[in-house]
């Protein structure tokens, strides 16, 4: 019962949603499928409650018991509630969560001056690690490794003003930017395209396995 019903639900919903693409002009099929997709979207969104409950449970316990690093966990919870409080205040009181004016909405100010800089700095930090990883990994041991390295170097040089300048200074005209464009547009397109075709085939295979209950990731732990 606990296993069979979920498998039947997946089978019924999955087959119906696939059939929807073939019977799109039939109104009741289209409307029902759209409603099912909407319900699925709502259920996925509502699972954010699970995430918040887990964060609260784990961090609150650590703070109360004064475990190691409890101060950081307190900072996490305070920031989370600050953003949530400011956001719900903006939503319910001002009926909007975005603003172009500094000082208009605390939620927007916190997004623009706290979350956004933190997020882009985190990603910017990767520039250093990528550079150091490249320095260690790029060794011209054989032809494929050489192709990897030269493609990366040519793309990096061809897409920045330094590459344009270098190309001009060496009397090559716009050769470097053109080579970078060609690499992105031709061999890169071929490789990406083949990878995407492979990914699509994989998704179709896994999707069918999941719909027909051969693969049951949601029943793990039973």
């Amino acid at each position: 019962m606990r296993k069979e019903i979920p498998i039947l639900i997946t089978l019924f919903i999955g087959v119906f949603m696939v059939l929807k693409f073939f019977f799109e002009p039939v109104d009741w099929v289209r409307i029902s499928a759209e409603e099912i997709a909407k319900i699925a979207q709502v259920v996925v969104a509502s699972s954010v409650v699970l995430g918040v409950a887990n964060i609260l449970r784990i961090n609150f316990r650590a703070i109360v018991q004064r475990r190691r690093d409890w101060g950081y966990k307190l900072a996490l919870l305070v920031t989370m509630f600050l953003l949530m409080g400011a956001g719900f205040w903006a939503h319910f009181y001002h009926h909007r969560v975005t603003s172009l004016v500094v000082g208009d909405l605390l939620f927007q100010d916190l997004y623009g001056n706290l979350l956004s800089p933190l997020q882009s700095t985190m990603f910017a930090l990767l520039a250093f690690f990528i550079a150091s990883a490249a320095f260690r990994a790029f060794r011209v041991r054989n032809l494929p490794a050489a192709l990897l390295m030269f493609a990366a170097i040519l793309i990096m040089l061809g897409r920045v003003p330094l590459g344009h300048w270098l190309s001009q200074a060496l009397g090559l005209g716009a050769l470097l930017p053109n080579v970078a464009d060609w690499l992105m547009g031709v061999p890169n397109t071929a490789g990406q395209r083949a990878i995407l075709i492979g990914v699509a085939l994989g998704i179709i295979a896994v999707g069918l396995r999941v719909i027909f209950g051969i693969e049951r990731p949601y029943l793990k732990g039973e």
Binding site: F123, I130, L147, A152, I155, M184, G191, Q192, A194
Partner: peptide, 22 residues
């Protein structure tokens, strides 16, 4: 060979995106 050029191009492009953020 094609894959290596693809990975190299993607790598170069990612580095540029990160440097732009920096």
């Amino acid at each position: 060979m094609i894959l290596m050029i693809t990975f190299g191009s993607s790598f170069g492009y990612t580095v540029l995106a990160r440097v732009s953020l920096l």
